[in-house]
Design a protein around this nucleic acid. Structure first.
Lengths: 193, 193, 193, 193
DNA sequence: GATGAATGAGGATTCATTCAT
DNA sequence: TATGAATGAATCCTCATTCAT
């Protein structure tokens, strides 16, 4: 399994840095290779093509969010608490890794429609977990049982996403973590049953 | 003033179609020119360069949103009503123009950071009007007076944006206008004082 | 005759200025038209095409040299005196018109081979008069009667030309007129019988 | 060092042929690449851009003149002999390579001012060696000690250059090598002390 | 597995010239 | 005569990918 060889992760991490520092369109394969300390050709021993690198970057990093969220769901008591922790975790992970935030919020979105569809597919696992929390809350009365789950999910995700993107576009000039409770409060009010 | 000459609007509209049908990176100047029924060189009598076309597209189309919103603010009675109408208008304009929706939600976001910053500057006028509504509502008690306006604004815009983008990515397979009241209800609950 | 209409000379002079200030390749027809205070299309009422402007510029300005030289030949006593005055005149005319010097010595030489052949044809009249002086001198014993006239002519013209071009490339930083007597002395020694 | 790789020289030689056969402005990169038997992109592994090819052509070819001249200076006995051999060498090298003669005398001069300045910088090394010969001759009494070296150098170079350019413009119709002794004789008489 | 030299397709932009007014 | 809006051909360079070593 290529995924477990050291050079695989080495290239993934190099890609994040190369994209963050140079921008999506300026993150050429040769730059990623240089950053990873391998030859250009070596990249193609681990990835099918350039697009495959970017998808893998998103996949690997998204896996962290999904894992965290699964744990949150397992350990959380109320739906409200689960959602709160999900929001906090989302903000915290990106607040702690500016490179990653730049890549996911700004750079990777410059990819073409086709690639974005693939990225969305990866994202779906995360959104499915979010749906679980929402449905649970609607069932147990914590959230409004009459609301449309898709719309609610898009409110939660859209609000989080917009807040983080704005923070990145403002070049991290304010503390993102301070925003989290405000977002949480607004969203929970909107959702509550 | 070039902006008022017929060919200016002709090229703008051609650009929307060319981008929607071919994608951002495949919308070559020659394609836009062909779609507009003018020679390639004619484009450059009205626009400084390709980027200028894209900025102008966003500017011209955004102007419709801003104009509508200004009218909504003038005629609306309560802040709640103003916000409701703003949401409805936003959904309706894009529901009626799939090409424009594709361009603003998916294609134009593939532009590089520099261009996106310019686009954001244009967007700010719209968001400022949204802020006005929110602040008014916080003052008159319709909305929660303790909330952070920026976060609230980002919830409203992020929720609208995410819902529309998802609709576009699902290739307009469901009726966007039916979503509007659901979005409106959730958001107003989140904001209310 | 178009040649005598005021706009003809107006465009010629505008071309010299446009070329001198912008360089050969940056002297677009539109710039020349603007400098001349006429519309782009008007240029084509007086000149067949862009090349025709440049040829005419050279023709009109070279005519001054030829006229002067004819007078020098008529009034001069010895061949030595005629050659001396030709050299002085050549240096003086260009020393007094930096724009013209830039155009003839640097810019017009950037034209393609075809145009340069045409320019050379115009130059030939001037060189023929120079040949006359040389042959006269070879006949009357002032110049070496065994020398090859073509080679001698090319020495005279090449020396003058190289000195002036160097002066232009040094951005007129020294006094060209001071060079003339030194050139004259060297050339006459080379030629003398 | 790219300069020593076989493809470097291969491209340089291809450029000379492409320029000579098509003219400066018609020597597209793709033509040079085709002539060199490499892909267009390969050019850019060896040269920064198109201008860099042209500068390098001049540099590489001028290096031959400079090298020859250095040897001539070392082995020559009198200043007169050194100058004579310099003239002969200059004529001979170009007489033997019509392509090169076309390129240096006609085509490369169509470059813009900026490039010509760079070319002149390369030429300076050659002219400095010429100055050395002249100054030596002025010191040892072979040449006129009162003459202005710059003017003398410009006479020598201008005369050689004009004779060769005329030969190229006459499409090599006569034997250039026969001109050399005539040029030599005239110049030496002009310079002698 | 690893290298890196070589490939070659693809597009924004300029500007001389025309021609309807 | 004079205008100037419109035309459209033409080219340098980048960079993802391959493959001989």
């Amino acid at each position: 399994m290529k995924r477990n060889k050291p050079k695989y992760k080495q290239i993934i991490d190099a890609a994040v840095i190369a994209i963050a520092e140079n921008g999506y369109h300026q993150a050429q394969v040769s730059k990623i290779a240089k950053q990873a300390g391998v030859a250009d050709g070596t990249i193609y021993l681990y990835f099918k093509n350039k697009e495959d690198i970017f998808i893998s970057v998103f996949q690997e990093k998204m896996a962290v969010f999904v894992e965290n969220l699964k744990e949150i769901i397992q350990q959380g008591k109320s739906s409200t608490e689960k959602l709160s922790q999900m929001i906090d975790n989302h903000f915290q992970v990106l607040a702690n890794d500016h490179h990653l935030a730049t890549v996911t919020q700004l750079e990777l979105r410059q990819s073409n429609k086709e690639l974005r569809v693939k990225i969305n597919t990866i994202l779906k696992e995360y959104l499915k977990l979010l749906d679980e929390i929402l449905i649970e809350g609607m069932t147990n009365g914590e959230f409004d049982p009459t609301m449309d789950v898709r719309v609610a999910r898009q409110m939660v995700f859209g609000t989080i996403d917009e807040n983080i993107t704005t923070w990145v576009m403002n070049e991290f000039r304010y503390d993102l973590v301070e925003i989290a409770p405000k977002v949480r409060k607004l969203l929970l009010k909107g959702l509550k049953g």
